[in-house]
Amino acid sequence: MNHSYVVTGAGRGIGRAVVERLGPATVVAVERDPAALGWAGPGVIPVIGDAADEAVLVRAAGLAEEAGTLAGWVNNAVVFRDAALHTSPAGEIRALIAANLDLAVTGCAVAVRRFLAAGAGGAIVNVTSHQARRPVPGSLPYATAKAAVEGLTRAVAVEYGRHGIRANAVAPGSVATERYERLLAERPGTEEEMAVLHPLGRVATPAEVADAVAYLLSASFVTGVTLPVDGGRTVLGLDPEARE
């Protein structure tokens, strides 16, 4: 039986690593930026569009089902923009929280409906962040949204487990994505700071996060969990990044 998957935010970083890790299965890669999928080869079906747009995800699900049995769905798309309570209108902050949360809610909704219709169950993995439990200054909308996504994950696991649908999350610490590489170039000394924050002495590679995603997609009796993939960052008491 051929399995297929949908991955959102699939063009770069963790999303790309997940797509590559799931091969040779067919993966429908949802991405807003067409240029970000220039690397995609056979077995990767690009869908260009906003992962918060239900119509885009319905199209992605249909393509995945044409290629095989839709077995898993990974909600990785994210919006990186922050605002502070003391300087930004409350409406702007709510909109930023919604921008991130909507990506996971829409993905979960489409995945659940397709799994129910097929009657064969399936697995959802939401990509959250260590900041869902340990926010750092300047990340209030992002941290709030990621905490809500972890709650959503648990609720989906409880609500739909009896239908064979599992929902889990991975919570990365810092990861060596393109965004992280830009940070290194802009702020000398960042790499040494990050080494201190992670007991393993370094940040993760996207492939290491993808390994955890693949595990949760295949772990048939694991549901409702958030798996830290952070090199021990969330269990470390000292966090210099959290200081002004």
Rank of each mutant, 00 (worst) to 15 (best):
A176P: 01
I93L: 15
R21C: 06
V136D: 00
R94Q: 12
H86Q: 13
G122R: 04
T69R: 15
A25E: 14
A169E: 12
A169Y: 11
T226L: 11
T26L: 01
A104Y: 00
G121C: 09
P228T: 14
L217V: 08
L96P: 02
R81I: 00
S129F: 01
F221Q: 14
L37V: 13
A171D: 08
A214Q: 10
A99W: 00
G164Y: 10
H3R: 15
V213H: 04
R202F: 06
A185H: 11
P24M: 08
Y160E: 06
P34T: 10
E20L: 09
E159M: 03
G62M: 06
G49Y: 07
A185T: 11
V136R: 09
L103P: 00
D33K: 11
V74Y: 00
V7Y: 07
N2M: 13
W73C: 01
G38S: 14
V56K: 09
A111M: 05
G161Y: 08
I165K: 09
A95I: 00
Y180C: 03
A40R: 08
N100E: 00
A36F: 10
F221N: 12
V222W: 04
C108M: 09
F115N: 03
W73I: 02
P24E: 06
R134P: 01
G41L: 00
A51K: 08
I45W: 00
E150Q: 14
P206L: 09
V19R: 05
G9D: 07
P172T: 12
R202E: 05
G231A: 11
V158G: 01
R81W: 04
R154I: 05
A242S: 15
A25Y: 06
L63M: 13
V110Q: 04
A155C: 12
I45E: 13
H163C: 12
Y180M: 14
Y5I: 04
A67C: 04
P141M: 02
D230M: 10
T128K: 03
R179V: 13
A61M: 10
L103S: 01
I48K: 05
G231F: 11
G38Y: 06
A61D: 08
V27Y: 11
R179A: 15
G62F: 03
T226V: 15
G161R: 07
S174G: 09
G119H: 09
V136K: 07
A185R: 15
R202Q: 09
V196H: 13
L22S: 08
Y142D: 04
S174Q: 11
V74P: 03
G13D: 15
V28H: 09
R94D: 14
W39E: 07
I97P: 03
